[in-house]
């Protein structure tokens, strides 16, 4: 991983404000002049950003601001959406994500994703955890048992399910299902986890459990979290990026963004007047 320094003066015409703190860390994700759209619709406009390795970054902003579209572009999940196009560059783990030559399957192994609602696969709890391992042929059959236990222990689900690993995951509670999905993602040893409102469908206790896990996993894994909960962004993230109308308005250390926002849109949004 090479050191990348973000040049704040690079684009003086760009009215976004980039804080120094982001640029001093090693970065895992570098986005340059990114434009994304679906057909005629221009969803993301000229976004430039960098994310430090081993941190939790929140993407906040009103509905339709393009944060989820951005998130889903990092692992190219938008590829199958009709009319999807991109311009610019997303550099993740020193690979150009948007290039045609990239090994999509390997990229998606390195970049896990957790969705708005738990989405276990229609197979046993055990097989859910192993789904990625099997797809990437990452371990021999003999190691499966250990991998399952390891991943489930990591998310704190082992005690609840160790005696029903062959049962359907759909009988678990919503929070447990989401933890299972997290275990499934962790099993393939990702470097980055994309979280698309990962706790919006969960009860408060499950939310706490999931959030605690993020903080526990954080130096090894970088988290990019799209969230509509400002409280959550404040609680868990080191850095916050505010999207508005397809543009990255402001980004920086979370406490600074919330205590001393520079842009009027950010001020409005975090004080609850827009979005």
């Amino acid at each position: 991983m090479k050191d990348l320094v973000i040049d704040r003066e690079e684009d003086p015409g760009n009215k976004t404000s980039q804080r120094t703190d982001v640029s001093t860390s090693r970065t895992i994700l570098n986005v340059r002049h990114l434009d994304i759209g679906f057909g005629d619709k221009h969803v993301i406009q000229d976004v430039n950003l960098a994310m430090p390795t081993g941190s939790i970054v929140s993407l906040i902003g009103p509905t339709g601001s393009g944060k989820t579209t951005f998130l889903r572009s990092v692992n190219r999940l938008n590829d199958k959406v009709s009319g999807f196009w991109t311009k610019g560059s997303i550099n993740l783990l020193d690979q150009e994500v948007l290039s045609k030559e990239i090994d999509l399957l390997e990229l998606r192994r390195q970049v896990g994703m957790l969705f708005q609602r738990p989405n276990p696969f229609p197979m046993s709890i055990k097989d859910n955890v192993l789904a990625g391992i099997k797809a990437h042929k990452m371990a021999p059959r003999a190691a499966y048992k250990e991998i399952v236990q390891d991943a489930l222990e990591k998310v704190g689900l082992w005690k609840a399910v160790y005696d029903r690993l062959d049962d359907s995951p759909f009988r678990l509670s919503g929070g447990q299902q989401q933890l299972l999905c997290l275990a499934r993602s962790l099993a393939v040893q990702p470097k980055v986890l994309l979280l698309d409102e990962p706790t919006s469908a969960l009860d408060p206790i499950s939310v706490e459990a999931v959030e605690n896990l993020f903080s526990k996993l954080v130096p090894e894994i970088t988290f990019i979290v799209v969230t509509h909960s400002l409280a959550q962004a404040k609680r868990i993230s080191d850095y916050t990026m505010f999207f508005f109308d397809g543009k990255l308005m402001e980004s920086g250390v979370t406490s600074e963004i919330f205590e001393n926002p520079q842009m009027p849109e950010t001020q409005f949004y975090i004080s609850g007047r827009i979005g």
Binding site: R108, Q116, N119, P120, P122, A131, G132
Partner: peptide
Amino acid sequence: PRLAEEGAFALGMTEWEVTRKVTFPW
């Protein structure tokens, strides 16, 4: 549900694996 299939794609499964392991059982 699209979410289930997208989850499988996001895990790095191929089109065929998604169809076989998620769509068909469903």
